[in-house]
Design a protein around this nucleic acid. Structure first.
Lengths: 106, 106
DNA sequence: GTAATAGTTGGCGTATTGGCCAATTACCAA
DNA sequence: TTGGTAATTGGCCAATACGCCAACTATTAC
């Protein structure tokens, strides 16, 4: 395992980690239909606006989304939409398993 | 957002979370070439054998891998290989490029 | 100017994760 | 049985992650 390979796997894991949260995933799925302001995403996930904002900043830093300011609103959108096509495979992992993922401490 | 939708997004996030660690991702990529014993995976990631074993248990619980005992060794293999096709898209997020081939759907 | 709305940032407490060590289990061979 | 190797499990501690509140910035309207 070269040092460069190690570095690559760390960067990849970082991107995946940025998706690995229920609220963040929910927002990414909503953004599949087009850009949304923070206020809409906040209503969607139901957490504090500051919490939502931090989730979005994290995903922006990871390269998953980008933003656009317009008046009072900040609109977020997917930067690389293919990430959502992965969900079919994730569902395949869930559908074939004996233990439901809700029992997994991860 | 219905309760069922919330539950689904939590389960999906759980699977993704199980991939979201450099050592785990490294092992998943190694398993793309076929099954490996824990001892080989331990050499690959370079962590304590107990740490590696816990990572594997976690991925097994999430449905990502399955194992097979043979004598002294436990061999792990991918349970749903499509998860690795996602890596092209992850790299696209990292490289700031448009959309990789993985994103073209038939 | 003030007020109102949208969003970000800092701080802090709690919960989760990840790592190693030590102990234990499982299997095989002499 | 004894010993050796492979792997898992429990415990403990340090480092992260998450959530809310409060404070602050930015923009618009009056």
């Amino acid at each position: 395992m070269t040092l460069e390979k190690k570095h690559n796997v760390q960067r990849r894991a970082g991107v995946i980690k940025a998706m690995a949260h229920p609220s963040r995933l929910m927002m990414l799925e909503a953004l599949a239909d087009g850009e949304r302001c923070v206020c809409d995403l906040q209503k969607l996930v139901g957490a504090d606006i500051s919490t939502v904002s931090k989730h979005l900043s994290l995903m922006k830093a990871a390269g998953l989304v980008e933003d656009r300011k317009q008046g009072l609103w900040v609109h977020y959108r997917l930067r690389v939409p293919c990430i959502l096509q992965f969900m079919d495979c994730v569902d395949a992992v869930l559908n074939e398993q004996k233990q439901p993922a809700c029992c997994v401490r991860a």
